[in-house]
Structures are given as structure tokens and as C-alpha cells.
Design a protein around this nucleic acid. Structure first.
Length: 757
DNA sequence: GAGTTTGAAACT
DNA sequence: CAGTTTCAAACTC
């Protein structure tokens, strides 16, 4: 139990926290080991734990699996996925055990989880395989397992083929898992079936969301999934998941469930994780997988041995897809699975992204619509959003095509990149968009016809916030005309390390710059949120000559009005003047319209994201931005971009990091209310969670960061300890979670994390 | 496409 | 924390 709880908590905990917590580790290598703690890392950590413990962990699990389903496959799958996660995970020493526990403890979940893991695995696999034969083996194994499990009904191939399906499974499975706990297992087959049924192309996006979302997630994820795509078939599952969630919350099962959820999350995360942050739960799974991977070279075989039996036949199926994902594998550091691997803090989905990038096929979640990959950082979950001015949600990094990262191009989602993913993430969009293509277009579309656009850095090596790609949590891609670029999957470690450093300095650095308060629900539309009116720039601008009428102005660029936080001179911001009434919704007139348009373009997803963000923001007055990606999405939406057109890049989600959402703008209160209503009770709690997560991740208590910082140029990372109160809040959250809409995954996840903690 | 302007990010 | 420098996007031509 304890272990579980711990694991869970870790999973949920914001990556940032960990990172920050381990601030010192900041240095990459160190970080990896210690740093892992960071949220993004969390995933890794979990995985690592698993990996490290794998043997131990798995061993226990296996038995279970054997009993119920044929979990081994899952393991193998996990292993496959692990590689990526492992990198980071491995690094994280802390995690180690915890995850394992979670895994072990959740025998049942595993079953349910298997599908999910499979999915993730599949995706990841594709990547990994390419890189590693072992992976292929694993995949095969997994497939075999799948076959066994699904045997009855589902075609794994189909599943495999469709990452989305996998995702679906995941969700379903996740949901089921909890039940399974209770019940003891949901039929894998059923899960698979459901998953099959649902099939979402969204998968990726959904996954991203999921990842972003709290660990609990499973249900959430499903919900989220539904939201975005809302698949009919899934609904049932969702319900189940919800139920399960409730159960989990109430009972120990919950913990397990969390583990499951985490697993699920991992899947997602695996696919996308924006910079990291978020996806805590996901991270777990991802972590495990990654860990496995790491070990894979070594360990992985073990698993294979165990699982290998069935693998071969299956492998063919999976292979096709799996093969595609190579790169990620590469990143994986074989070495010692144990090795802290690569970057501590990051659970990069970059790898995934990379893979995606390499293989278009796989593309998975990770790649952003743009093809970019999101950079998944532990700390920054968000990446999504964060598109700075630019846009990406993916920012989170997801670096892939997405952002894809869940993020921008990367996975975009991340991501991650959700985009991405996913941004941030980030990430946001990308993340969300697990299906980079679709989402991206939505996001990118808007502004940028050229979703491809990229940075043009010459001196920063794309490792500073000057770089839009980096800031968005996305890896640079072809379209970029940067020089000496280090913001590539190849330099993942460097990227992550740099990110950490920057985040250590300013936890909100990768957080979305524009926060939507959502006051406006009043603003019409769903996406009313999109309207800048409610939104505000986190820090405010400092324009002196542009009168806040050009894109030099971050507020304007973000499509939001200037606020008290702004120190601009001669403000004429079309979206809302500093001195003028805060635009509640109407202020902006034209610009808003434009923005809204863009938002619309982005599509519901964005709206959703926005909502989430808003929620977060609102809730957390102090909440730190978690994933930039999300923000990014917003920004993108908001921006009218007109001419220049660089609309926000993609929506990456990256990963991101976890920018906190700052709510610096209090405006939110009213908004908050709305959001709360929307979200219902649960959210109320959520806010707390949000903040904590971010803060946690990074550091400090939310309040410090947010409130103080917004105006302030830089926010100093707060050091935080989680306050007990939050914990309590977490608990609450858990309960509520089920009810939560998909929109605010982060919160959810956070909540979960918190609780567990 | 080159050059200028601008303001954020980074540095001191 | 304030001031300065660096940087790259935004903008102009």
C-alpha cells in the first residue's frame, strides 16, 4: 500500500516539483538521477523505478498477469515503451521503487493496463523497434500477449496499427482497471474491444490529454478522450472509468488505480509528453516502459524471455508500426537501464518525438502536427501551451512534428507535444492532438499557414527562451532556419538540462504566457474562453514604443488585453488597455473576433484546453503554469495574428514544462466561478492542485510564484513544500475527478498526485 | 531578402 | 531589484 501510494504520488506529482525539488540536481546528469524527481521526470521515475525494480516489480506483476491476462505482454510492451521513459526514468533514482510498487501492487490494473500499455507500447515500440531489435522482440511479445489477452476478440494488429485504438484501449483499460481491481480484472478482451470500438484517431491527442491529465486519469483520460473526440463506444468505458475512479479514490484500490492510471498515463505520456510535466500518471507508465527499455537492452530481454514465447507471430503485426519509431529508441540509453539516464528531469517524449520524426509512420502522439516533437520535460509538463507568443502548445515540447508533442511539431504533443504536445508542453495542443495532423492543423492552421515555421536563432543555439521552438517546448525542425541548433532530439539531454536550468530560475518560464481567466464565459461561445477578454498575459508586457499594438507586445501577440501587470507605456492594446476596463469579453472587439476565429479554427480541442487552462488559472490564482503547451494553444487561439502570421506555432503542447498557469490574473475569480460551475465541485479542489503541481514541480508554493511574479518580471521559483492542506485538497480532487470533464486533465492529474502524496 | 525596430530574455 | 546587454521576432523597406 504504502508503496503504491508513494508511487502514485510520485506519478501525480508534478514533474516540476521533482525537478525543482531536486533543483540541485539541476544539472542534467545529476538531475537525472536526482532530478528526476521533477514531474516530467516523475514519469520517468516511475518507469525507472519499475525498470530498476523491474525485475522485482515485474516479477510480482507477472504472476498476476499470468493469472488474469497475460500481462507479460504488457510488460514487454512496457519495456518497449520504457526505453524512452527509461532514459529519464532510469536516471531518477528516487522513483525507482515506487513505481514498481505501483506496478506490482496493481496486478489487476495491469491487466487493464495492459491494453493501454500495449497501445503505448505499440506506438513507442514502433519507434523503439527501429532502433532496437530488442524492442521489436518486445513488441512481438507484447503483441503475442495482446493476442493472448485479446485473443478472443480483438485484433491487436488493428490496435497496433491504430495508435489511437491503443489509446482507446488504454483509457478503457484504465477505467476498467480500477474495476478490475475491484472486480479483479476487467477482461482484457473487453477492454481491447472497447478500445477497438472507440478507436480514436484522437488517440494521440487524447493520450496527450490524458497524460496531461492527472494520473487518476484513467477515467479522466477516457473522459478527456471523449471530450475531444467523444467516441461513442468509449462512453461506456468512461462511465466505467469514472466508477472505477470513484472506487479508487475511496479505497486503496484507488491507489492501485492510480498506478493503473499512471500506467495509462504512461502510455499517453509515452506517446506524448510535453515537457513534461503533466502527465504524471502517464509518466508512470511511460516510466516503466522507459525503464524497461533502458534495461531492455538488458532487461528487456529478460522480459522477452518471459514473454517472448508468444512474441514472434505477433511481432510481425506490431512491427510494421513499431518499426517506424526508431529514434526514440536511440535516445534511449541503453546503458544501464538503471542509469539515470539521460536527463533527469525530463521524461522526454522527445524520444518519442524523435522517433516520430524519423518515422512518419509512427508519428504518434509525440509528433506534433507540424511534425515536430514535443519536448517532454518532467518539470514542464506543459509544454503545450506555451507557445509563447508564438504559439505552440506544443510548446511543450513536444518536439515532433507537432509540436508534438504533444507539442509542436514534435509530437506535438507534446506531445506530449502533447504537443506539444504539448506543448505546454506543452503542448499543449500538440499533446492534445495526439493526432498531430488534425489538431495541428487546427491549431496551426489558424495562424500559421506555415505551421512549419520555425525559429531563426543564430546565437542562442535554440536553447534559450529567445527561441520560440524551445520556449514552446518543441524541438526545432526542418523549417527552422536556426544555426547551431541544439534543440533537437539528438541533443535531448542538453535540451532537458537547459530547460531545467531555466525552470530553476523561473519555474514559469515555460508556462503559458497568456492565462485565460475565463471570466467570460460570458463571452459567447464555447470558446468564449478563447476570447482574450478573459485572458491576460501572465507577466504583462513592457512595451514602450509599440503602444501594445504590434506583435512586439506579448499581450497583443497573445491576443489578450493589457492588465495591471503590464508596465507598458501608451497602451493602446486593441484587446484591452491596461488602464481600461479589463476586457471582460467584449472589450476586444475586433481583435477578439480575430482571436476567436483563430480559436475556432483551432477547434474544440483548443477550447477544451483553454477551459482547462482557465480552470487551472482560475483555480490557482496562484497556480503556476504547468504546461506551456496549453497556454500556447490558448495564445494561438487568441492571437489574431494577422499578418505576420506566425501565429503561434503549432500548438505544441509540450511539454511542456509545467508552466504554471499563472493566474496571476485574478480576474479569474469570476472566471473561476464559471469554471467551477462547469467543472463542478471537483474543480474547486482542483485549483489547489494545480498550483501545487506546478509549484511542486518546480518549487514552491504556488502563491509565491504566481501572485508575486506575474507582475514581476521574473518569477522566482518558489520553494515549496506541499502544504498539507493541498493534500487534503487532493483527496477531494480524487473523488471529484470522475466527474471532471476531460478538459482539465492537468488539474486532475495534479489532484491525484497531490492526494497520493 | 536585408535592414531596422522592438521588447523579452539573459546577464551583471 | 535595477540596469544593461543580448537576442530573435516583428516589422519595414
Amino acid at each position: 500500500m504504502i508503496l503504491l501510494s508513494s508511487t502514485i504520488s510520485t506519478a501525480f506529482l508534478p514533474l516540476n516539483q521533482h525537478n525543482f525539488s531536486d533543483p540541485l540536481k539541476s544539472e542534467f546528469p545529476d538531475n537525472r538521477n536526482g532530478g528526476r524527481a521533477s514531474a516530467g521526470v516523475l514519469e520517468d521515475v516511475d518507469l525507472s523505478d519499475c525498470s530498476a525494480d523491474q525485475q522485482g516489480c515485474f516479477a510480482p506483476e507477472r504472476p498476476i498477469r499470468g493469472v488474469t491476462m497475460e500481462p507479460q505482454d504488457e510488460n514487454s510492451n512496457l519495456a518497449i515503451e520504457l526505453p524512452r521513459t527509461l532514459r529519464y526514468d532510469c536516471g531518477s533514482p528516487d522513483n525507482g521503487l515506487m513505481p514498481c510498487h505501483g506496478i506490482k501492487t496493481n496486478p489487476v490494473p495491469e491487466i487493464a493496463g495492459t491494453p493501454v500499455s500495449l497501445v503505448q507500447i505499440v506506438q513507442e515500440f514502433s519507434e523503439e523497434r527501429c532502433s532496437f531489435e530488442t524492442e521489436a522482440n518486445l513488441q512481438e511479445i507484447c503483441q503475442a500477449d495482446q493476442n493472448k489477452e485479446e485473443g478472443p476478440g480483438c485484433d491487436w494488429e488493428n490496435l497496433i496499427s491504430d495508435a489511437t485504438d491503443l489509446l482507446i484501449f488504454d483509457s478503457s483499460t484504465d477505467t476498467e482497471v480500477p474495476k478490475g481491481h475491484d472486480q479483479k480484472l476487467v477482461d482484457p478482451v473487453t477492454n481491447s474491444l472497447t478500445s477497438l470500438v472507440s478507436k480514436f484517431p484522437q488517440d494521440t491527442t487524447n493520450d496527450l490529454h490524458k497524460s496531461e491529465s492527472v494520473g487518476l486519469v484513467g477515467s479522466y483520460e477516457q473522459n478527456e478522450m471523449e471530450d475531444p473526440s467523444t467516441q461513442p463506444g468509449e462512453v461506456v468505458e468512461q462511465k466505467e472509468t469514472e466508477q472505477t475512479l470513484h472506487i479508487l479514490s475511496t479505497t486503496i484500490l484507488n491507489k492501485q488505480a492510480n498506478g493503473d492510471s499512471s500506467e495509462k498515463m504512461d502510455d499517453k505520456a509515452g506517446s506524448i509528453i510535453p515537457f513534461g510535466c503533466k502527465v504524471n500518471s502517464i509518466h508512470h507508465r511511460g516510466m516503466r516502459r522507459r525503464c524497461l527499455v533502458f534495461e531492455i537492452s538488458g532487461v528487456h530481454k529478460k522480459k522477452l524471455d518471459n514473454d517472448s514465447n508468444s512474441s514472434d507471430s505477433i511481432s510481425s503485426q506490431s512491427d510494421g508500426k513499431n518499426v517506424s519509431d526508431d529514434k526514440q529508441l536511440v535516445p534511449i540509453k541503453p546503458g544501464s537501464g538503471s542509469s539515470p539516464c539521460i536527463l533527469p528531469g525530463i521524461g522526454l517524449h522527445l524520444n518519442a518525438l524523435a522517433t516520430t520524426s524519423k518515422d512518419c509512420r509512427v508519428v504518434k502522439h509525440e509528433t506534433l502536427p507540424s511534425g515536430r516533437k514535443l519536448i517532454s520535460m518532467p518539470s514542464s509538463i506543459a509544454s503545450f501551451h506555451s507557445f509563447p507568443p508564438s504559439s505552440n502548445p506544443l510548446k511543450p515540447i513536444a518536439l515532433n512534428s507537432m509540436e508534438g508533442d504533444r507539442g509542436p511539431s514534435d509530437k506535438e504533443v507534446q506531445v506530449k507535444q502533447d504537443a506539444s504536445q504539448a506543448s505546454a508542453f506543452g503542448v499543449s495542443e500538440e499533446f492534445n492532438q495526439s493526432s498531430p495532423k488534425k489538431k495541428r492543423r487546427r491549431l496551426e492552421h489558424v495562424g500559421e499557414s506555415d505551421a512549419c515555421k520555425r525559429c531563426n536563432c543564430k546565437k542562442s543555439k535554440c536553447l534559450k527562451l529567445y527561441c520560440e521552438c524551445f520556449a514552446a517546448g518543441v524541438y526545432c525542425v526542418e523549417p527552422c532556419s536556426c544555426q547551431e541548433c541544439f534543440n533537437k532530439p539528438i541533443h535531448e539531454d542538453t535540451v532537458l538540462a537547459t530547460r531545467k536550468q531555466i525552470e530553476s530560475r523561473n519555474p514559469l518560464a515555460f508556462a503559458p504566457k497568456v492565462i485565460r481567466t475565463s471570466e467570460n464565459t460570458s463571452e459567447t461561445g464555447d470558446d468564449s474562453n478563447k476570447t482574450p477578454a478573459s485572458a491576460r498575459h501572465k507577466r504583462g508586457c513592457n512595451c514602450k514604443k509599440s503602444s501594445c499594438l504590434k506583435k512586439y507586445c506579448e499581450c497583443y501577440q497573445g491576443g489578450v488585453g493589457c492588465s495591471i501587470n503590464c508596465r507598458c507605456e501608451g497602451c493602446k492594446n486593441a484587446f484591452g488597455r491596461k488602464d481600461g476596463p479589463a476586457p471582460i469579453g467584449t472589450e476586444e472587439a475586433e481583435p477578439e473576433e480575430e482571436e476567436t476565429e483563430t480559436c475556432e479554427k483551432n477547434g474544440v480541442d483548443q477550447s477544451v484546453q483553454n477551459n482547462d487552462v482557465q480552470k487551472e488559472e482560475q483555480h490557482s490564482d496562484s497556480v503556476l503554469p504547468i504546461t506551456p503547451s496549453f497556454q500556447i494553444c490558448r495564445s494561438s487561439v487568441q492571437l489574431p495574428f494577422s499578418s505576420s502570421g506566425k501565429p503561434p506555432r503549432s500548438s505544441i503542447l509540450a511539454i511542456g514544462s509545467s508552466p504554471g498557469l499563472n493566474a496571476s490574473q485574478k480576474p479569474g475569480k469570476s472566471d473561476i466561478v464559471h469554471s467551477q460551475h462547469k467543472f463542478e465541485k471537483h474543480f474547486q479542489v482542483v485549483p489547489e492542485d494545480d498550483t501545487p503541481e506546478i509549484l511542486k514541480g518546480d518549487c514552491s508554493p504556488i502563491s509565491g510564484v504566481k501572485t508575486s511574479s506575474p507582475n514581476c518580471k521574473r518569477v522566482s521559483p518558489p520553494h515549496l513544500g506541499l502544504s498539507p492542506t493541498r493534500k487534503s485538497g487532493r483527496k477531494l480532487i480524487l473523488q471529484s475527478i470522475p466527474s471532471f470533464p476531460p478538459l482539465t486533465p492537468h488539474h486532475e492529474s495534479r489532484d491525484f498526485q497531490l492526494k497520493f502524496k
